[in-house]
Amino acid sequence: MGSAIGIIANPVSARDIRRVIANATALQITDRANIVLRILSCVKACGVDHVWMMPENGGIRHHVRRGIDRAENQGQTHFPRVEHLDYKISGTVDDTLKAARLMKEKGVAAIVVLGGDGTHRAVVTACGDVPIAGVSTGTNNAFPEHREPTITGLAVGLAVTGKVPASHAYLPNKKITVRVNGHEEIALVDVAVVTERYIGARALWRTETFRELFVTFADPEVIGMSAIAGLLSPVSRLDEGGLHVRLAPEDEASIVLDTPIAPGYMRGIGIRDYAPMKPNHKYRPSIADGSIALDGEREVSFTRDDDVTIELVPNAFRTVNVSGCMQYAARHGLMRMKPDQKLKRVGGQ
């Protein structure tokens, strides 16, 4: 089997002000490159021979190349052929969008994403029906599940080579579509309406500006804006709808919720009320002027003159079901080696 996959590794996730206000993770470039190398060796072990990577000038590419060259110098063959897409690097989110689009055109079977919620959102915006597999290297990481990337790499390899059947290998996901005068943006986890009218440092941490929240799923084990919903009324990724939460100053609130809105950053959040968010139903912001944060980052500002709608879309894109793949692999003995394989693996690396 020779299915190609794509890897999009964002060198600039986990770099915002939350390093200062909340002691958030600052994953180093060499760590990100090592994650890529681990994934490469795992997908190769499953039979993936070719990987397309996003080009970037943040350093990941150089360290990955160095790791592959060193392995080759030692006669090791456990990495697939790695090629970087060829285009002019902008150093912005446009690189991620372009990489996802080009990988789709090249027919990759899946895209592994290293980043936070924002990076995953950008990939889903452009990758169409190509399934993605997330690795958390961002700040809040509500969307990508936390696990050792070795396992994510194995699951992707098992899924794209057909060793795990598609019925077990992939899961459907919801998204939220935000339209401002017809211009469309998406969120994978949460859409927050805040009063600020500038994008600025993007991150959300001033709770007094929060007004309203829409989430695709609500997990009490995540942090960030979606944690507010998760601690109120959990909704799974596979449930049909989401949750709509209206926020209020603490003195007007029916509930004040102690919430980790950033890593280690606990704040009281006033809740006016909350209700299920219906799929395929158009909601409008409760304030006339403000900004919309997508997956925790301010992205779009609007005024009373703008037409803004917010809509939950079910079955919007697919992810690799890492847990499902590994369970299937274990139950069906997919990782049990034949005698000739054992000899090869010992000699090969």
């Binding site: 060198p11 770099r15 200062v20 600052a26 470039i29 943040g58 350093g59 994008i199």
Partner: peptide
């Protein structure tokens, strides 16, 4: 490659911003 990584090497927090955006 990353100036923030350079700070991390000395135990300092580092932040990257778009220096063209005043806000």
């Amino acid at each position: 490659d990353s100036f923030v990584d350079r700070a991390a090497g000395f135990g300092l927090p580092g932040v990257t911003v778009d220096g063209l955006d005043f806000f």
